[in-house]
């Protein structure tokens, strides 16, 4: 056990180092290259105006968002997998993301145009709308797949179905928008964080800072739930109550991420798998590692998306789908 914990610390340190390196790399890469020396100068406050504009207004908020969303999606997937005893659970595959996406599209369609005065406030209401959508989707999926309990396979199949239904609804409403909003919604839906500024960071920061630590606080409950319902009951856990609380955390994390980052699938599926392989199933070390890995992967994916086909940007969701989809296929062929 001790060895595992030591290993977890090592992995955590390695990941933090990797994140810092990617961050620095990210600061100097891009359409406008900024030399490392200038990056350093700008960060310490002695750079020129253009550089500090690019760094502080465009690159930095985007990277912070990538880190936050990556961590949130990964933790959300990890909780879903542990709570449903289902290795294939992921907010993207289950349709929770598209439920949130639909709510956001509805919100933009009905309110954005009508209430121009609130401006910045509307950005802060986005996560809320998204949360409502993701919760409704989750409740739908759970009730439809309920038949003397929820079998993992049924949950996934129902999720795939719900996903397509929301995707169709999204298209119908999207087409009612004017062309400008339409393009924006399309790019956003494929998982994109390029248009973010500090407002968005502020809008989701509170969610992340409450929900992720709360999830980690619940680590021991997750440990017992993961042993199976009977054992968990025997150990004195309120199984259903704990499960609902944890599911809600997972759904809320996914919803908040979608409101800013759009549909990013497979991240919540792949990261927990990798993390479990490295540090085992004790949630006290598993959850933090999952969060760090998720943050790192999304940041790396965004770096790739921004630079691989420069000057055109590939939405980060697509990059994650390619990486995550390949890993998922590998997993399928192994089992």
């Amino acid at each position: 056990m001790n060895k595992k914990i030591n290993k977890a610390w090592l992995v955590a340190i390695g990941l933090v180092a990797a994140i810092i390196v990617t961050l620095l790399l990210n600061l100097n890469l891009g359409v406008v290259r900024i030399a490392p020396v200038d990056v350093f100068k700008t960060l310490t406050g002695s750079g020129n105006e253009q550089n500090s504009m690019i760094l502080f207004h465009f690159r930095l908020p985007r990277m912070v968002i990538a880190l936050l969303i990556g961590a949130a999606m990964a933790v959300s997937g990890a909780i879903l997998q542990s709570v449903t005893h289902n290795d294939l659970a992921d907010p993207g595959i289950l349709g929770i993301n598209s439920g949130a996406g639909f709510a956001v599209v509805l919100y933009i369609f009905y309110f954005q145009g009508n209430v121009p005065d609130i401006g910045a406030l509307s950005v802060f209401l986005l996560p809320l709308a998204s949360l409502v959508g993701s919760t409704i989707a989750a409740i739908l999926i759970y009730t439809i797949s309920w038949k003397n309990g929820v079998s993992p396979i049924r949950l996934i199949l129902v999720g795939i179905g719900i996903n397509s239904a929301f995707a169709a609804l999204i298209i119908i409403f999207q087409l009612k928008m004017d062309p400008n909003d339409f393009m924006r919604a399309t790019v956003w839906l494929s998982g994109n964080i390029s248009g973010t500024d500090w407002t968005y960071v502020l809008a989701i920061l509170p969610w992340m800072f409450i929900l992720i630590p709360f999830a980690m606080y619940k680590a021991s409950a997750l440990n017992t739930l993961n042993l199976g319902d009977d054992i968990a009951k025997g150990l004195g856990t309120h199984v259903e109550r704990e499960r609902r609380i944890l599911l809600f955390i997972a759904v809320a994390l996914a919803g908040a991420s979608v409101s800013v980052g759009g549909g990013i699938a497979f991240l919540g599926l792949v990261i927990p798998h990798l993390a479990r392989k490295i540090v085992g199933v004790r949630h006290e070390s598993f959850l933090p590692i999952t969060a760090l890995m998720g943050a790192f992967l999304l940041l790396a994916a965004d770096t790739i998306g921004r630079n691989i086909l420069s000057p055109s940007e590939i939405p980060v969701g697509l990059v994650v789908s390619v990486i995550g989809g390949s890993y998922f296929i590998y997993l399928l062929s192994k089992t």
Binding site: S145, K147, R154, L157, V158, G161, A165, A168, I172, L175
Partner: peptide, 29 residues
């Protein structure tokens, strides 16, 4: 949504999904 057209794929999806869910419930067990 006249006079605009809605992609026909969305209509078939909305017809098909309930059926898919029914199958998933029946076969999934």
């Amino acid at each position: 949504n006249p006079p605009f057209e809605t992609p026909v794929g969305t209509i078939t999806a909305l017809v098909g999904v309930p059926f898919f869910l029914y199958l998933a419930r029946r076969e999934g067990s």
